[in-house]
């Protein structure tokens, strides 16, 4: 399979990249890991005239702590990096879990978190973990920088709030105050090289008194966008579950299923997916809560 013809640019600073993008606008595409973009180009779903690669820009590939306010992920952090990074594993393991299930080891060595978000696949492995972590994204364009919550970022399959002349430059994950835990489960057909049939991520934070201070559940592949489920947060907020088998988790899981909007396609039917949302959400909640109990 051949790539269509294009011009290639490899700026060395974000500003340079931004001005190039400002110049070419919709004719250009940003190249990060290329695991989605180049596939789409080979299949002639996209034929940009200009490719602007970010890979020669220093400092976009890592995560670091930002003066006590949280974590910053460089947009070119690869899935392999996120899965293997001690920092990510310790601070936000749900993201490491999601990253470790993305594609295959070969894909994970190239696929980037920025690219994964921009591609905006409903079945993304990274978006649900980032949604439950209340991530924000920073976009830079000719009119300057803006930061928005990830939940406002996705507009539809392949559609995001990013303007044609903007570049995703940072992903911010706010600090977590109390004891917290997260979990990610992916249901696919085979055990690797898989697109989610359904995936769920959850994040729980405990208050001092042992009640749930914050609960967030996000779902993949069951709506046009990776979906955060406010009803789950509402049900669990302030609750003090007896143990991981507390029926409140099932109740929350049912609410998640209610909120999902799955479709029937060749990978699976809507009713199966909806029920799987319930099962997987329930399992992630129980898993996260049992981690919390171990930490307390």
């Amino acid at each position: 399979m051949l790539l269509p013809k294009f011009d290639y640019h490899a700026p060395t600073t974000i500003d340079e990249a931004c001005s190039m993008l400002g110049h070419y606008g919709a004719k250009a595409k940003i190249l990060a890991g290329g695991t989605d973009l180049l596939v789409h180009m080979k299949k002639r779903l996209l034929s940009p005239e200009q490719i602007i690669s970010l890979n020669k820009i220093e400092g976009l590939k890592e995560a670091f702590s930002q003066n006590g306010t949280g974590l910053v992920l460089g947009p070119l952090s690869t899935a392999a990096y996120l899965a293997d990074s001690r920092l990510i594993q310790e601070r936000i393991s749900v993201l490491a879990q999601g990253a470790s299930r993305l594609g295959s080891p070969l894909i994970r060595n190239r696929a980037t978190v920025g690219g994964n978000l921009i591609t905006a696949r409903p079945a993304s492995d990274l978006a649900p973990p980032l949604l439950v972590l209340s991530a924000k994204v920073t976009l830079k364009g000719p009119r300057g920088e803006r930061t928005l919550p990830l939940e406002d970022f996705f507009l539809g399959p392949g559609q995001t709030a990013v303007q044609a002349d903007e570049i995703l430059t940072k992903i911010l994950i706010p600090n977590i105050q109390g004891i917290s835990a997260g979990a990610y489960i992916k249901l696919g057909t085979r055990k690797a090289l898989e697109i989610s049939l359904v995936n769920t991520a959850c994040f729980l934070e405990l208050a001092q008194d042992g009640s749930i201070k914050l609960a967030r559940v996000a779902l993949g592949a069951v709506a046009p966008i990776p979906l955060l489920t406010p009803s789950v947060s509402k049900i669990l907020a302030g609750v003090k579950p007896k143990n991981m088998d507390d029926p409140v988790f099932r109740e929350a899981a049912r609410a998640a299923a209610q909120e999902s909007k799955p479709i029937t396609d060749h990978r699976g039917s809507a009713d199966y997916r909806r029920y799987m949302v319930e099962i997987l959400t329930w399992r992630t909640l129980k898993n996260a809560y049992s981690q919390l109990m171990e930490k307390v």
Partner: peptide, 8 residues
């Protein structure tokens, strides 16, 4: 290890 078909 990477897929060289997806690397320019």
């Amino acid at each position: 290890p990477v897929n060289s078909c997806l690397v320019l």
